[in-house]
């Protein structure tokens, strides 16, 4: 399966993406997680040590005069699969994590990494890995480069008016012919029984799963631990496990 998480900042994309990847990996499947958010976070939710490891500048070469295409591309002889072997970090449950360069000085310094990243995603052999993508928060071009790539886009929605307004905007962006195959909502931090119904009515998206507000998950996040390590029996992690089962059933009709 190829799953991308989008949503409003703070909705819980990283926590859910990290947990989903770990749950999926425990079923014995090879999982590659792609973090395209230049802010740190996903590594912690996955249970990896915090790492700035990304795609180094010398993995790329600059376009020569007269050539077409993006300004930077992977250096000659470096395939997408090889780049993953070299630059993706291995972690618990044998999950592999490929990080976009992390924001240190200024956005301009990330351009090489960004171009390499897009090329890897485009050229990746799709049947080798299950892919879990964590996209930057917000609603500006969130599907950039991912729309055709992901088979399922999960919009993480907090059941607040602001959360639903953001999700509506995302649903609109995804709802064109270039949009992803399937867009589903994941209700997160739910405290009321009618949240799923409210989100369906408020966003027009089908709710795949409702993740309850969970003090154990919040505590794991506060301590910088992966939810699946710190709170394996929590209701929130259980809900993500249900989501995995559902997606696996959907992926193999």
């Amino acid at each position: 399966m190829r799953v991308a998480f989008v949503g409003k900042g703070g909705a819980g994309k990283s926590a859910l993406a990290g947990t989903l990847a770990r749950v999926l990996a425990r079923t014995g499947e090879p999982v590659l997680v792609i973090d395209s958010d230049p802010m740190p976070g996903l590594a912690l939710s996955l249970g990896f040590p915090a790492t700035d490891a990304g795609i180094p500048d010398d993995a790329t070469v600059e376009r020569a005069d007269g050539e077409d295409g993006p300004r930077y591309r992977l250096r000659p002889g470096l395939s997408a699969a090889k780049a993953i072997e070299l630059y993706a970090v291995a972690g618990p449950d044998d999950v592999r994590l490929l990080q976009f360069g992390k924001l240190r000085e200024h956005v301009g310094s990330l351009m090489r990494s960004q171009h390499a990243f897009h090329q890897i995603r485009e050229e990746l052999p799709v049947d080798r890995w299950h892919l879990v993508g964590d996209l930057p928060g917000g609603t500006r071009q969130p599907f950039f480069g991912w729309a055709q790539f992901a088979t399922v886009v999960l919009v993480v929605v907090e059941p607040s008016e602001k959360g639903m307004l953001s999700a509506r905007r995302l649903a609109r962006l995804g709802d064109d012919e270039d949009g992803p195959a399937q867009i589903l909502a994941v209700v997160n931090k739910s405290r009321h029984r009618d949240d799923a119904a409210r989100v369906e009515a408020g966003t027009g998206l089908r709710v795949a799963v409702t993740v309850p507000w969970d003090e154990a998950l919040a505590d794991a996040e506060r301590r910088g631990l992966a939810p699946i390590d710190a709170a394996p029996d929590s209701a929130a992690v259980g809900a993500v496990a249900c989501l995995v089962t559902q997606l696996q059933a959907g992926a193999q009709p």
Partner: peptide, 17 residues
């Protein structure tokens, strides 16, 4: 903000925002 929600928190409402 690229995801502009400030109108809701100010109390201006969804439609006007």
């Amino acid at each position: 903000d690229t995801n502009p929600n400030l109108g809701l928190s100010l109390g201006i409402g969804v439609e006007e925002t």
